[in-house]
Amino acid sequence: MNKITLVLLILVLGITRINAQSDTYVLEEDIPYYETNVSNSDAYIKERCKLDVYYPKEAEGLATVVWFHGGGLESGEKHIPDGLKNKGVIVVTVNYRMHPKVKHPVYIEDAAAAVSWTFKNIAKYKGDPKKIFISGHSAGGYLASMVGLDKTYLEKFDIDTDEIAGLIPFSGHTITHFTIRKEMGIRGTQPIIDKFAPLFHVRKDAPSMLLITGNRELEMLGRYEENAYFYRMMKVVDHPDIELMELDGYGHNMVYPAVPLLLDFVKRKTVALVPK
């Protein structure tokens, strides 16, 4: 067999393998995550409060990554990030209502409703409710942190935040989000730590966390530093399982290189959940 034939054969086999793997996954789109009476009560809820579930047909008891898109709480659409497809995890990707049509804390309430839906329904998609990880980029990372740290949002749905297997915010605010500050008439360069800041809810018993940001010199203003401060305060209260990673060479748009770190974190924490 000559080299050209061998290369072509490898390429064909590779494409066949990729296609076969892709064919084992199903994407179920635009599932309302509020109860029907709530969805029907408001046109904007009915339009925006939907999620997609991407799951494999054959596997059982998989981990789930709930993904919230970025966009400053003002723009963006649900999507599956590059690198999260065909990786042996279920992905739940979420739309939520946005500024200026709504104001805080509606964004966080929607995120909590989507996480609650996941806990209550993921077994139908062969996922394990004990292996649910919450993630997202920028505004989505902020929402992941708020839902996982402020217990009040999930309590409304009879869900304990400590049942979350892990939080992996990508370049998310740990101070109060700049759009929320804008809604309160506070300029974007004035940092605030109130009940709408993940930093306000630092606690020892929070879920495992992996904080990822771009390089501190390339990131949005102060984004690495506020995550570093959050990390330090979690250490001060003796949180047992938090990591902080700064991606050199990348700025705020650091999703693609961060996804393998997310997957590694999910794998490590999932293994730890297996009874010995």
Rank of each mutant, 00 (worst) to 15 (best):
G148C: 04
A206Y: 03
F196E: 15
E58Q: 07
L143T: 05
G166N: 03
L73R: 07
A206K: 02
G185H: 12
I134S: 03
P191F: 02
A139Y: 05
G72H: 01
V38S: 06
F200L: 09
G71Q: 09
F196V: 07
P129N: 02
T5Q: 13
E60W: 01
I134T: 04
K131S: 07
P191D: 06
K156Y: 05
V7W: 06
V92G: 03
L199H: 04
D42H: 03
E77T: 07
L6E: 14
T189R: 09
D128Q: 01
H239R: 02
E225P: 13
I159K: 00
T16F: 13
K103P: 10
I122A: 12
K276S: 11
G249I: 12
K78D: 09
V102Y: 10
L51E: 04
V255L: 02
P81Q: 03
V7L: 15
P257A: 10
Y55A: 11
A197Y: 09
L6I: 12
K204P: 00
Q21S: 14
K85C: 01
L273Q: 08
N215G: 09
D160Y: 04
N37K: 13
P100N: 07
M245F: 11
I31A: 10
G249K: 10
L273M: 12
L9A: 15
S41G: 14
L143D: 10
M1R: 11
K267N: 11
A59Y: 07
D110N: 12
T16W: 12
K182Y: 15
V26W: 09
N215I: 01
S138K: 10
L221Y: 13
Y229C: 00
R181K: 15
N227I: 01
V53L: 01
L11N: 12
S39C: 09
V65G: 01
E29T: 15
G76E: 08
E225H: 14
Y256F: 12
D238Y: 04
V259M: 11
D110G: 13
V102E: 09
